[in-house]
Write a protein that binds this DNA or RNA. Structure first.
Length: 769
DNA sequence: CTAGGGTTAG
């Protein structure tokens, strides 16, 4: 024991105050023993009387300070207390270097009361101690005590000012920070940088840039940290000209090789949309860290090259939780939700702690998959890591439960939040719509403390999902009246509603509005317009909108191909499909549905089979039930009823009721009651509540003159309590749409509706009454 | 001979 302690003691004594050289001994026991032996040894050496001038006293103080520092590094409170006891006894506890180390030790060991006590006892006018205390108060969340302390300081240096400015900015108190900044008698690069970055933190980028300009005028030279902050601010607010002039300064002042400056430049060029330049910066760096590599990942994500991003991720020399979060977030945003979940799992397997960002991304991936099981399991991790009160995590949880149809679970999280932001409110409104709980959704919307475009969009798309198109238009009008400018999202939802309404007027009106806002050819709006015009029967306008779109995605092409097919322009639809195959867009599942449908309309049986077979063979898409149904429709319409029945019996998957219904409907057209009866039996068996089977069957009997069987089917329907649903129609009177049903003469505006109808189509009235 | 400002994800 003795030998070991002597070695430690000797090392400390000889190497002065260096903490790092003697941090090897890490057992609590040996550490406190060594401290005790130091004092024993020192007591022997100290000579009373020559105390204050001897070198041994100086060494004693230094050693004491050094040991205290070691105690705070290793959080050994007991040893620290023992040391303080000795220091007090020997009368050196008010020595500046001992005292500052004591302050640090109490702070590190989380003893604010003791820390405060010795501060009040000894601090006096020592600026360092005051600054230390201010930082400590601020970092523990008590910014008011921090600024009180600052105001009481007998004397301040520029560090004091910078601390208080930075801490106020971090807490969003921009005005207070600015007040201190203006009162600060002397500025440095650091105080200016704190100010610039403080503005940026509070989304006041332009003020940050102006402060930067003021700093240059003041004659201060920015350093690499200032440049990093300014470049980041430029990227956020899109001030690319300003950014370019800053880049000039960076190069002139030889900061072009600095690690963080280059890292921020990669992101700047990405925000400018110049992935090539971003890549160039990365290639030219002399030194790279995990931040540089993570930024490079985003370069490939922005170019849409997931493969290369994945490749870079695999070969990166180092990863941290941000790199993992980035991968999870981008995969989730690219619609690769399954891959996002996989990455999250592997992040945990690799020993990384999930953080708020990775939670938010992985929850939104589970939401888009509507995978409740996975969502719940991530939720349990969220609770385990104590992130359930984070607003980002909570709002994505609300969204996840909503999309899985669990609005009550969503509501529980919503209610548990002490601080809710507008995102949570909007997600919850959407949640009720997903569950079809319109009353609750509307109620909650009325309670919203503030409304943004997303709140209105939640209402509008909620009504669209529930096919309440009148409410869509009504809400849209309210939105305009409230002064809220509609977004792309709004237009694509409202246009979707217009596509389902008979009047083209509203749609045209909306088209005009989007032109005014300059978003008519934007991908989402343009696609919705294409769809709306096609569904409203104005295929020429649909085509012209489609052609004007500079960028088209899979959905846009589907809308146009489907629109042409549905308008009976089957040849054109097929030609467009061939055009699309020449671009880098791959045919999708719904597209094939339209293509087969188009073939069906033109009786192009062979072509239809060709496309159907190419799905699996060429494009690797497994045909779904509805594709088989479309094929049956193709064969049945062409009168190939026997082949159609054969086709169904050979299907590798269970046919849906609609598959048989397609055959049945062909039997009606071609008057085949033999196959028709079998098909009808299958339809009724697969879908007992549905009227379609019965109605079609009775139609077949009627078409071949089996009137007795017709009345048998009708009786059967009556007995099983199945009613034929009434038809629904729409009419527009002035600015309002009215839905009315064939049995509905109780509509509040019935009289007016009938009056209008009488003008239009007088012979329709008797059928409806 | 110690303090104050920073880059990547959400």
């Amino acid at each position: 024991m003795g030998a070991k302690n002597k070695v430690i003691f000797g090392r400390i004594y000889c190497s002065g105050t260096s903490c790092s050289t003697e941090s090897q001994s890490n057992s609590k026991f040996s550490s406190s023993i060594s401290i005790a032996s130091i004092f024993k040894s020192f007591k022997r050496k100290l000579v009373v009387g020559s105390f204050h001038s001897t070198p041994s006293f100086k060494s004693y103080v230094e050693t004491c300070a050094s040991l205290l520092r070691r105690c705070s590094c290793t959080h050994r409170l007991l040893s620290g207390l023992a040391l303080q006891g000795h220091a007090v006894k020997c009368g050196i506890s008010s020595d500046r270097s001992v005292f500052t180390k004591l302050l640090t030790m109490y702070s590190e060991c989380n003893r604010p009361a003791d820390q405060n006590r010795i501060f009040i006892e000894f601090a006096g006018s020592d600026i360092f101690s005051w600054n230390f205390m201010i930082t400590d108060f601020a970092r523990s969340g008590d910014i008011d005590s921090a600024s009180n302390l600052f105001d009481q300081m007998p004397e301040r240096n520029v560090v004091s000012w910078t601390i208080i400015i930075d801490e106020l900015m971090k807490r969003g108190r921009v005005r207070d920070a600015l007040g201190y900044f203006e009162r600060c008698p002397c500025h440095t690069v650091v105080s200016y940088t704190a100010m610039i970055n403080g503005f940026a933190r509070n989304v006041m980028y332009l003020d940050g840039l102006l402060t930067f300009r003021r700093m240059i005028r003041y004659g201060l030279m920015p350093n690499e940290i200032t440049f990093t902050c300014v470049i980041t601010a430029c990227g956020f607010c899109g001030e690319f000209d300003f950014a370019n002039s800053v880049v000039g300064m960076i190069i002139k002042n030889v900061f072009g090789q600095n690690l963080s400056v280059c890292n921020s430049l990669i992101t700047l060029y990405l925000r400018m949309g110049d992935a090539g330049m971003a890549r160039k910066v990365f290639d030219g760096m002399v030194e790279r860290d995990v931040v540089s590599w993570t930024a490079l990942l985003d370069v490939y994500f922005q170019m849409g090259d997931l493969k290369e991003a994945r490749h870079v991720f695999n070969k990166m020399p180092d990863r941290n939780e941000v790199s993992w979060s980035m991968m999870i977030a981008r995969y989730s945003q690219s619609g690769e939700a399954v891959e996002a979940l996989w990455l999250f799992k592997h992040m945990l397997c690799n020993g990384f702690k999930p953080n708020i960002s990775s939670f938010a991304s992985v929850i939104s991936a589970s939401a888009s998959l509507e995978n409740l099981l996975h969502g719940r399991s991530v939720h349990s991790h969220v609770v385990k890591f104590g992130c359930e009160n984070d607003i980002f995590v909570a709002s994505s949880l609300i969204d996840m439960y909503s999309k899985c149809g669990k609005s009550d679970d969503a509501r529980r999280i919503f209610d548990s939040l002490a601080m809710k932001n507008i995102v949570c409110w909007n997600a919850m409104v959407g949640g009720y719509f997903y569950d079809g709980r319109m009353v609750e959704a509307k109620d909650l919307f009325m309670q919203l403390p503030e409304r943004n475009a997303a709140s209105w969009n939640a209402m509008i798309s909620g009504f669209v999902q529930n096919e309440l198109y009148e409410d869509v238009l009504e809400t849209f009008n309210e939105m305009l009246t409230s002064g809220q400018v509609p977004s792309r999202m709004t237009f694509s939802s409202v246009l979707l509603a217009c596509a389902s309404l008979p009047s083209l007027e509203k749609g045209k009106n909306l088209h005009a509005k989007t032109v005014k806002l300059g978003i008519a050819t934007e991908i989402f709006v343009g696609t919705a317009l294409t769809d709306m015009y096609a569904k409203s029967g104005d295929i020429e306008s649909s085509k012209s909108v489609f052609c004007l779109m500079p960028e088209k995605n899979e959905v846009s092409w589907t809308a146009m191909i489907q629109g042409l097919a549905d308008s009976g322009l089957a040849e054109e639809s097929l030609a467009l499909f061939e055009d699309m195959k020449k671009t880098d867009i791959n045919p999708s599942e719904p597209m094939f549905l339209s293509i087969i449908f188009a073939c069906s309309h033109c009786r192009l049986v062979d072509k239809g089979f060709h496309y159907f077979e190419s799905m699996d063979k060429v494009h690797g898409i497994t045909p779904k039930e509805r594709h088989y149904t479309a094929m049956v429709d193709l064969l049945s319409r062409a009168g190939l009823l026997r082949q159609a029945e054969d086709f169904i019996r050979k299907m590798p998957i269970q046919p849906e009721a609609n598959t048989w219904a397609a055959l049945l409907s062909g039997c009606v057209t071609h008057g085949n009651d033999g196959i028709g009866e079998r098909a009808a039996k299958m339809v009724i068996e697969l879908e007992r509540q549905s009227t379609a089977g019965y109605v079609l069957l009775s139609n077949i009997y009627a078409s071949v003159g089996r009137w007795k069987d017709v009345s048998k089917v009708r009786t059967l329907m009556r007995e099983t309590g199945i009613k034929k649903g009434g038809g629904c129609s729409w009419i527009q009177i002035r600015d309002c749409f009215h839905a009315f049903y064939s049995w509905d003469s109780n509509h509040p505006n019935a009289l007016e509706i009938y009056e209008v109808l009488e003008l239009l189509i007088p012979e329709m009235i008797p059928c409806m009454l």
